[in-house]
Amino acid sequence: MIKRAIIADDHPMCREAARLALQIVAPSAEAIQAASLGDVLADEDNADLVILDLGLADSRGIASLIEVARARPTTPILVMSGDERPDTEVRAAANGAAGFVGKAAPLDQLAAAIRTVSEGGTHFTPGLEPHAPDDADARLASLSPAEARVLRAMRGGGLNKQIAWELNLSEITVKQHVKAILRKLGVVNRTQAVLLLHDAVRDPIG
């Protein structure tokens, strides 16, 4: 039974469509609307379901799913994406999603997906061949939540001092996180780290 669900999408119309589908399945459920990954991660209350877009403004692609799945390991996550290529769906399944539905899906199909994953099942294209996370995804998943935040901040090209101010951390802490990020990702500099993150975002976003 869904009592509380988080709907994460930076497009209000998509959030509303997901809310309407949720209402079909669980009319009394509380629908928390989030426009960014930061909003999702900041919500520490219990949730019975997360409906997650892969095109959030502050984190795009499978990297978003990796972080949400780590933060809520027991909560089913239904990915709702504008990119319906098989590779994207396979990667979602490999990185913690309980289901995958395209944004072009009709309301009743989205509601069916919500019902299935909320009852402990999975909702993927029939015949989908699951596999372990690929190398780039696995290395990103090895980062701690704090390291993942710093890596996202590194996309802007800011120096440690700027990232420290942005994330309200000390410069020494940021420096330590950057060092750990490079080691865990198996890269030698910040540019390569960001490129690896971009590789995990190689799917067209929507």
Score class of each variant (00 low, 15 high):
111 A>N: 14
24 I>D: 15
49 L>E: 08
148 A>G: 14
120 G>I: 11
145 P>R: 03
175 K>I: 00
63 A>R: 00
122 T>Y: 06
140 L>Q: 03
150 V>R: 03
64 S>E: 13
35 A>M: 05
149 R>Y: 01
38 G>V: 02
83 D>T: 02
163 I>W: 09
176 Q>H: 03
90 V>K: 11
111 A>C: 15
15 R>K: 08
178 V>H: 02
33 Q>I: 04
203 D>N: 03
160 N>C: 10
72 R>C: 02
90 V>T: 13
75 T>L: 04
147 E>K: 04
40 V>F: 02
164 A>M: 03
111 A>D: 15
17 A>N: 06
43 D>M: 11
170 S>E: 01
174 V>A: 03
159 L>H: 13
196 L>Y: 00
25 V>T: 15
180 A>Y: 03
93 A>L: 04
206 G>W: 00
164 A>C: 03
134 D>L: 09
48 D>S: 04
126 P>W: 07
92 A>C: 15
174 V>H: 06
141 A>T: 05
38 G>E: 11
80 M>P: 00
180 A>G: 09
48 D>G: 05
171 E>T: 10
122 T>D: 07
81 S>K: 06
168 N>Y: 06
134 D>V: 04
55 G>Q: 06
27 P>L: 11
145 P>G: 05
96 G>V: 08
40 V>W: 01
158 G>F: 12
62 I>T: 11
145 P>A: 05
136 A>H: 10
26 A>V: 04
128 L>T: 15
94 A>F: 07
67 E>L: 06
136 A>W: 02
66 I>N: 02
108 D>W: 05
152 R>S: 12
